[in-house]
Amino acid sequence: MLKDITMGQFFPGESLLHKMNPSLKIIATVLYIVAVFLCKSAAAFAFIFTITVLIIIVSGVPAKVILRSVRPLIFILVFTTVYNVFFTKGDTLLFSLGFVRVYREGVFNAVLIAVRILCLLVGSSVVLTYTTSPIMLTDGLETLLKPLTWIGVDVHTFAMMMSIALRFIPTLIEETDKIISAQKARGADFESGNLIRRARALIPILVPLFASSIRHAVDLATAMECRCYRGGRGRTKMTTLRPDAADWIVLLFFALLIPAAILLNVYVPFFSI
């Protein structure tokens, strides 16, 4: 069921990551992603993998949730692994089966790339989405993008749109589930027929969903007006976000991942990709 998707969800908590200033957290996430991409040698990957596990532990997000979020990735992981195992050419032939030749380099590539994908998706969602409420996330983004207002970009409206979109994701998922069940009860068939037939079968879902999105939007606009919303002008915030010393230290930690990865690549270069 659609409801089972956990990617992009927020898990409330009190960890160091939860409390971190969202703007700095966004920067930290970018630094983390860069560090993962810079990893080339097995040692660097082992290092970043350990760091990712450490981050998960610190975040306090339950392991069950992490494992479940990996489930939709399995296909991609299997695909890239198989691709790398069979199609990477190298020097040391492990075995061959007909025209398929498997090299040692292929196996290493496969493992390292799988680790890279895993770290990238799990790590960044733990650092960012799992530990940051959507509103904090958009607040952080708003702060970071503030300089753009000088060139005429309406950053506040953009951030507001983002947070409302995030707010309605669970509502719309629930509604989609309900509409699918209701149309199934009227004998709608989503599972058989060719591509065109299947695409047509989506109309009974998409039209009601579209109609309900518009209804939500109109009602919400009135409700916001009634609560005196008039754009970013003269608006204050309940929680003003000022990074404290701990936030800067965590950011420094993430910044140090980059030189660490590079150094490991250079000084422990075994099994590099």
Binding site: K178, A182, G187
Partner: peptide, 20 residues
Amino acid sequence: RRELRFRVGLVFQYPEYQLF
């Protein structure tokens, strides 16, 4: 399954939101 749903018809809560 599909024939069963024709034998046991179900109208959900707020069914007006399924019209298309």
